Amino acid sequence: MRHLHFFEVNVPIHHATDKTRHGLHVFTGHAASTWEALHIAHEVYDAAMAAQMAGLGVPERRRDGWGVSGLRPGWEPDWTAARAGLWKGWALANDVAL
């Protein structure tokens, strides 16, 4: 059995038409590595966006704890600037870029 840790993935976001508006979308869940955490966060985001674009509700949180809430229409993630690390409350440890 794989040993999983609880990760946080922080993805900078900006408004599609007003680049002065920016923020951060935070994903959390279990993964074996920072790379896997980044991959899963991107995967659940893509699934949520596809569901939203199809007029469906956002998928429920997965069994491994990953899910998406608070999608903001008109906001775009910058996955190249995403950072992942072990969950330490609101302090991110072990930064790893995508």
Rank of each mutant, 00 (worst) to 15 (best):
Q52T: 07
R63Y: 09
A51Y: 01
S69E: 14
T17E: 14
F7H: 10
L38D: 02
R62A: 07
R2I: 07
R21D: 02
A54F: 00
T34D: 00
T17Y: 07
E36L: 12
W87L: 15
A32I: 06
A97M: 12
H3A: 07
R61K: 12
F6M: 08
G29D: 03
G57V: 01
G65S: 08
P59M: 04
S69D: 13
L4V: 06
R2C: 07
H5Y: 10
A41H: 10
G89N: 07
G85T: 05
H14F: 08
W75R: 11
H39E: 09
F27A: 08
H22P: 00
M53I: 03
L24R: 14
A91H: 12
G29V: 01
Q52E: 00
G85I: 07
L56S: 12
M1V: 09
V26S: 12
G85H: 09
A54K: 05
V9F: 00
A48P: 10
T34K: 08
I40M: 11
A81W: 04
L24W: 00
A32Q: 11
W87A: 15
A47N: 08
Q52D: 05
M1W: 02
M49R: 14
A50K: 09
L24Q: 11
D78Y: 01
A93Y: 04
V26D: 07
H15M: 04
W35I: 03
P73E: 06
A41I: 00
F6G: 02
G85V: 05
Y45S: 12
R61T: 10
A97E: 11
S69A: 13
W87N: 15
A97V: 05
G89W: 04
R21G: 00
D46M: 10
G67K: 11
V26A: 14
I40C: 03
G23H: 05
H22F: 09
H5Q: 15
R21Q: 15
V68T: 13
G67P: 08
V44W: 06
G57K: 10
V9T: 06
M53F: 02
V44E: 03
K88H: 14
R21E: 09
W75D: 02
V11F: 01
A82L: 03
A54P: 01
N94P: 11
P77L: 10
P59R: 08
S33F: 02
Y45T: 05
L92I: 07
L4N: 02
R61M: 11
R63P: 15
A84L: 11
H5V: 07
V68C: 12
D64G: 06
D46T: 13
A54S: 09
H15L: 01
P73A: 07
S69K: 14
D18R: 08
Q52G: 00
M49G: 00
T20I: 01
H22N: 14
L71K: 07
A47M: 08
G65H: 03
A37M: 01
V96P: 00
G23R: 07
H30W: 15
T28Y: 08
R61N: 02
T34I: 00
